[in-house]
Write a protein that binds this DNA or RNA. Structure first.
Length: 361
DNA sequence: AAATTGCATGTTGTG
DNA sequence: ACAACATGCAATTTA
């Protein structure tokens, strides 16, 4: 490896990253590949979100481009290296699985640690080949073409990236031609992945630090997902504010069909004493989540979607019917088809309710 | 021989 | 149907 080559590459990269917010505003993709950029498209993180915006968690506000960012994108002169035409880069549709899932709290802490505003860009779930000894990590195409400096040659460029502790890292950002497209890879990540003890299924996160436009690499372990945190909290009886999924009474059925990732099955990993995998769609989950009958809900609107908000966690139970002004909930037994009344949350596990006239299998 | 690189191919996800 | 991408593997380089 030639030191001079690395130095020059880094210098070029820094230039492009500094002058373009976020990370390049022009198209330098050439060759016989498809032209995917359009005139006057303004990079804007809000556009990177999936079309179906009925998210179950709030994306941090900082992921949305500010007016000043838009102005920078519009106003900044095109000083890109190796650019062939003054065409702005288009914000590509970024898959929901690559959207940053950092919480507001984590983001605040990270911003505090780095003493700068941190903008989450995207994340990547580590695969076996990502964490393998080859030390090369495949990056999602739409994400890098939105946020990374454009590269025109397969050889790519060296990128200087800081990790969340401020450690400077140098990775090679390049691509492999693939059919008429590209596979983007980050090379030289093995040592960092090893040092962070990352494993298959963990998430590598890419963020931008403002001011300075520096790329920040971080990670999130799969074993402490927010779903698990919630489940553990529920199992310990902790009182925490949470959102119940909207029910028929609140959200029209039609709206719920465009829930985030509604086409795919959802897996809820409960990592307590033993591991249990539940595979449900969000719609199927609706039938098992019920508000505690003893508490009132607040109606909140998030991004034009209505949610019921409860202080208490929902009851996970078979779907039933509510009568007498929602004070009584009745459910039908799977085995004997008898209807039983659920009187109170405290009585949920009572002997009477658990008993059934149907023969045991 | 072992390690690395670059690409091809099969699988999966998405519009 | 097509694009994205995970990974296998042949070719090349290095020790």
């Amino acid at each position: 490896m030639k030191v001079r080559e690395i130095y020059e590459s880094l210098a070029r990269t820094n230039l492009s990253m500094t002058l373009n917010t976020p990370f390049g505003n022009s198209n330098s993709f050439g060759g016989g590949e498809k032209q995917q950029q359009t005139e006057n498209s303004i990079p804007n993180l809000s556009e990177a979100q999936p079309k179906s915006q009925n998210l179950l968690h709030k994306l941090p506000k900082s992921t949305l481009a500010t007016e000043s960012e838009k102005n920078v994108c519009l106003a900044s002169p095109i000083h890109h290296v190796a650019r062939k035409s003054p065409v702005r880069r288009q914000r590509k549709h970024i898959s929901a699985r690559n959207l940053p899932k950092i919480t507001d709290q984590e983001l605040q802490q990270l911003s505090g640690d780095l003493n700068s505003a941190v903008v989450p860009l995207f994340e990547k779930t580590l695969t076996a080949s990502d964490v393998g000894r080859l030390g090369r990590m495949v990056l999602p195409k739409s994400c890098v073409e939105t946020y990374f400096p454009p590269i025109s040659e397969p050889g790519g460029v060296y990128l200087q990236i800081e990790d969340v502790k401020g450690k400077k890292l140098v990775f090679k950002f390049r691509f492999w031609p693939n059919n008429s497209s590209r596979i983007y890879v980050l090379e030289g990540v093995h040592a960092w992945i090893q040092s962070m003890q990352l494993q298959v299924g963990d998430f590598v996160t890419f963020n931008r630090m403002d001011p300075g436009e520096k790329l920040i690499i971080g990670f999130r372990r799969a074993s402490v997902s927010s779903i698990q945190v919630n489940n553990i909290a529920m199992s310990k009886g902790m009182k925490r504010k949470r959102l119940c999924l909207p029910q028929e009474l609140v959200v029209p059925k039609k709206k719920r069909t465009c829930d985030i990732e509604s086409k795919r099955n959802k897996s809820l990993l409960i990592d307590n004493q033993e591991t249990l995998m539940l595979k449900l769609t969000w719609e199927e989950a609706q039938d098992f989540l019920h508000p505690p009958p003893t508490v009132n809900s607040n109606i909140v609107v998030i991004e034009d979607h209505v949610f019921e908000e409860y202080e208490e966690p929902p009851i996970i139970a078979k779907k039933g019917i509510f009568i007498n002004g929602m004070k009584e909930q009745w459910i039908q037994c799977d085995k004997c088809s008898e209807w039983r009344k659920l009187e109170s949350v405290e009585n949920l596990w009572g002997q009477r309710r658990c008993s059934c006239s149907a023969p045991m299998n």
